[in-house]
């Protein structure tokens, strides 16, 4: 997906990303309403993660959008009008703990496994499945770390790779 052009701040090589943490009623069709609102108002979702919360009546949708803050304010207000949306908090990237998960299967016979296992070890990932000529690894981490890991995996022969949407919580304050 590409970011909408007018949403990008001028002269910045990477568009700003914003994390919206949206608490919604856990009912059928709610995700469609949220997703549809973004497209109707001309915004692109760059990543999305949905799951029920500890309260079974509520789900949390974590949405990453790449836009400047003025148009974002508009989309947040429109989102807030959806009857099924209970609350929205915007997490500034520098004030959030963000995580993504990557699963990758690499073609690797017994001789090539060592190199992969070593890389996984450096990043703190895990080997989750091993076949005769392939290996599946997992890494959960900050998105930039997952990006680096993916870059390093690439030359090693990726068969399949899957990343989740981002999830995030506010960073905790420490006393100093």
């Amino acid at each position: 997906m590409t970011a909408v052009e007018y949403g990008q701040p001028v002269g910045q090589p990477h568009p700003l990303h914003h994390i919206l943490s949206v608490l919604v009623e856990n009912k059928s069709g709610v995700l469609a309403r949220v997703a549809s609102l973004f497209s109707r108002r001309g915004f692109n979702i760059s990543s999305l993660a949905v799951a029920p919360t500890d309260d079974e009546h509520l789900s949390r949708i974590t949405i990453v959008v790449d836009v400047a803050s003025a148009p974002l304010e508009q989309v947040v207000k429109q989102l807030d009008k959806l009857v099924n949306v209970v609350s929205i908090s915007e997490l500034a990237p520098e004030e959030a703990t963000e995580r993504e998960l990557l699963l990758a299967t690499l073609s690797a016979g017994p001789l090539e496994r060592g190199q992969i296992v070593q890389l996984v070890g450096i990043f703190g990932g895990q080997v989750v499945d091993v076949g005769a000529d392939a290996i599946t690894v997992v890494l959960a981490g900050a998105p930039s770390k997952v990006d680096d890991f993916e870059d390093l995996l690439r030359p090693l022969g990726i068969v399949e790779l899957q990343r989740t949407g981002r999830v995030a919580l506010p960073r905790l304050h420490r006393l100093r």
Binding site: G29, A32, R33, S36, L37, R40, L82, V83, N84
Partner: peptide
């Protein structure tokens, strides 16, 4: 029809 009218109603219910 709830899908069709999702974006042109304040809310709808099935």
């Amino acid at each position: 029809i709830t899908g069709v009218t999702m974006d042109i109603t304040k809310h709808n219910w099935l």
